[in-house]
C-alpha cells in the first residue's frame, strides 16, 4: 500500500496503526504528555503521519474559518420571551412547527377573551358571541385546535371528502396553509384550515352557506353588507358567502385585513 511506504522497518505495523490514530488528537492538543512524546517520536521517522498531521491541522483551521449562520431576529425574540407568562404556558412539548406555537398561544389567549367579550358590530346588534352557535362553536374548536397545536397535516382532499360544499382556500402573497381538520360547527360538518400569514395564524372554517345564513345577526349582516365582521381585544372574525360555501375567518388581526384575504 502506497501509504505505508514510509513506515520505518524497526517499527511494527501495529505500532504505526496505534500512533496513526493519535495524530488527530495530537493536532488538537488532546493527548497526555506521554502520548504526545510517543507521537512526536513517531513523526520524526514517518512521512505519512507528518502528512496526515498537516492534513488534520489544515482542515481543522479551515473549518474554524467557515462562515456560520446566525440566529434570525425572530428566533432571538422568541427565545428571549421564554419564561414570560405566555411562554410558560407552552412549556409542554409542541410537536408541530414551533415558530408558530407562541403566535398560536397569543391568539388562543385572545380567543378566550373574545369568546366572552365579542360583540356584533353590524346591524346595531350587540349579541354576545356565545349566543351565535356557529361562532361559539368555531371559537371553541379553534381553541381546541390551538391547544393541541393543530393537526400536523394539511390534506385538503381528506377534509373535503364527504362534504357537500366546496372548500375555497385562502390565496395571496405569504399565505401558507399548514394544517387541516374535520370538525362540526352548530351541528353541521365543517372543515378547519390553519394558515400562516404575516407572522400570525389565521384559522378558516368552511361551512355550508345555509348554516351562516341561519345564524342570528350573521345572516342579517350577510344579506345587508355582503359580509359579517366583528372584533374585540385585537381578535378579528369575518364571515362571507362565496363560491358555494360559507367561510369564517378568525385571527389576531383587524377584520378589515382579514376581509382582504377573502373578498
Amino acid at each position: 500500500m502506497a501509504g505505508n511506504r514510509d513506515i520505518p522497518v524497526t517499527e511494527t505495523a501495529l505500532q504505526h496503526t496505534r500512533l496513526q490514530e493519535l495524530v488527530a488528537p495530537f493536532a488538537d492538543g488532546e493527548l497526555t504528555r506521554e502520548e504526545k512524546r510517543a507521537v512526536e517520536e513517531h513523526l520524526r521517522s514517518c512521512g505519512r503521519c507528518r502528512c496526515e498531521l498537516a492534513l488534520q491541522r489544515d482542515l481543522s483551521r479551515a473549518l474554524a474559518r467557515e462562515p456560520t449562520p446566525r440566529a434570525s431576529v425572530g428566533l432571538r425574540r422568541r427565545i428571549e420571551a421564554i419564561g414570560e407568562r405566555t411562554s410558560e404556558v407552552r412549556e409542554r412539548s409542541f410537536p408541530w412547527n414551533r415558530r408558530w406555537a407562541a403566535v398560536a398561544m397569543a391568539a388562543l389567549a385572545s380567543i378566550a377573551i373574545a369568546g366572552t367579550a365579542l360583540r356584533i358590530r353590524r346591524g346595531g346588534a350587540s349579541r354576545p358571541m356565545t349566543e351565535i352557535p356557529v361562532l361559539r362553536d368555531a371559537l371553541a374548536d379553534c381553541r381546541r385546535a390551538m391547544t393541541r397545536n393543530f393537526p400536523r397535516k394539511a390534506d385538503l382532499a381528506a377534509v373535503a371528502e364527504g362534504l357537500h360544499f366546496p372548500i375555497r382556500t385562502l390565496r395571496g402573497p405569504g399565505v401558507e396553509l399548514f394544517s387541516t381538520w374535520k370538525t362540526t360547527l352548530a351541528g353541521s360538518p365543517a372543515a378547519g384550515l390553519a394558515y400562516r400569514w404575516r407572522g400570525m395564524v389565521v384559522v378558516q372554517y368552511a361551512v355550508p352557506n345555509e348554516l351562516l345564513r341561519q345564524q342570528p345577526d350573521v345572516g342579517e349582516a350577510l344579506s345587508h353588507d355582503g359580509f359579517y365582521s366583528s372584533s374585540e381585544v385585537g381578535q378579528g372574525v369575518v364571515a362571507v358567502l362565496k363560491d358555494g360555501s360559507g367561510t369564517l375567518l378568525i385571527a389576531n388581526a383587524p377584520p378589515e385585513e382579514l376581509r382582504r384575504l377573502i373578498l
Binding site: C51, E52, A54, P67
Partner: peptide, 27 residues
C-alpha cells in the same frame, strides 16, 4: 483519495485545494 493525499509527502497536502474553496463549501 485520502490515501493518495497522505502518500504524497507534501508538507501541506491540502494547501492548494483549500485555497481554491469558496467560503461555506467546506461546511
Amino acid at each position: 483519495a485520502h490515501e493518495e493525499i497522505v502518500a504524497s509527502d507534501a508538507p501541506s497536502p491540502l494547501e492548494h485545494l483549500l485555497a481554491r474553496l469558496e467560503a461555506g463549501s467546506l461546511r
